[in-house]
Design a protein around this nucleic acid. Structure first.
Lengths: 144, 144
DNA sequence: TATAAATAGGATAAAATTATCCGAAATAAA
DNA sequence: TTTATTTCGGATAATTTTATCCTATTTATA
């Protein structure tokens, strides 16, 4: 569904959110250990999230990554997906046709439209806050 | 959503179905011109569909690809997707976790489950017949 | 101010996906 | 039986994605 980079990005953002709620900065090392991802690659993705102002970085000694507590509830999965994979997954044609649209649909256009719209709605209405809380409450997990 | 190979595979299968309804064999050349895909790559994908017994090939002079008329209605998109991309798109975890399941869910498990299930249902209930007819009726298109 | 710790970013490598090329095998028709 | 046509399949190349490595830059603290 999403690229590896995007999967890592989502997981990283959730983990940063959890820690930021406790006022704690986290490093790429801590993040990649927690979400089981390659460290250097994860660091690149974090830079991308910083560039898109989804997470913020504190450079230098005792630095790390964090997310402004006040914004954790307003950051939606859609922002992360869009930052890393773009929005083609819930905008583009199911068969990859540039020319496909409502008035000139591909054979699967209507079939996919419903699903893509739901995916879009879900991503736009799922916040880091919600996901961070489910982990903290022990209702969901990153690893075994 | 799907790989390029899978997009080509779906388009090719629809085009073959349309022609098979008229008892006509089609070549990789005709197919790739119609669906706007690289010919040699498309040929590889056709071989894969043949191996999975979704389309059948007639070798030698005056040969080509076809789909048994009687089966066009029973072949669903899910079979094509599964043959080319596998079923991870509507089975696997949204965050790529091997350990994710109903009893040990990842943070987005429930959110994705609904969508994946719908995608699965749609793919399993959309037949080549339906898609071929919509093209023949001029209600959908491959190209401009 | 010097040092250590941390992110930023460029260069490069590995792996997967997408794409091309060419000869072998099959087969219908001349 | 020969020829022309067509799929099959292996080898290879190009591109994209994933991943690693190394150095520069930043910055808190000693």
């Amino acid at each position: 569904m999403f690229s590896k980079a995007c999967e890592y990005g989502i997981k990283a953002a959730i983990f940063i959110a959890i820690n930021s709620k406790e006022g704690k900065l986290v490093s790429p090392k801590e993040i990649s250990e927690e979400i089981d991802s390659p460290q250097a690659f994860t660091a690149k993705i974090l830079q991308e999230l910083v560039r898109h102002k989804i997470v913020s970085s504190v450079k230098g000694a005792y630095g790390g990554f964090e997310i402004d507590k006040i914004r954790i509830d307003s950051i939606k999965l859609s922002q992360i997906v869009k930052a890393i994979d773009g929005d083609k997954i819930y905008i583009g044609c199911g068969l990859g046709l540039e020319t496909c649209n409502e008035n000139h649909p591909c054979p699967v256009h209507d079939k996919f439209k419903t699903i893509r719209d739901e995916l879009k709605y879900m991503l736009e209405h799922t916040s880091l806050q919600e996901l961070a809380l489910s982990i903290k409450a022990g209702n969901s997990f990153f690893k075994v």
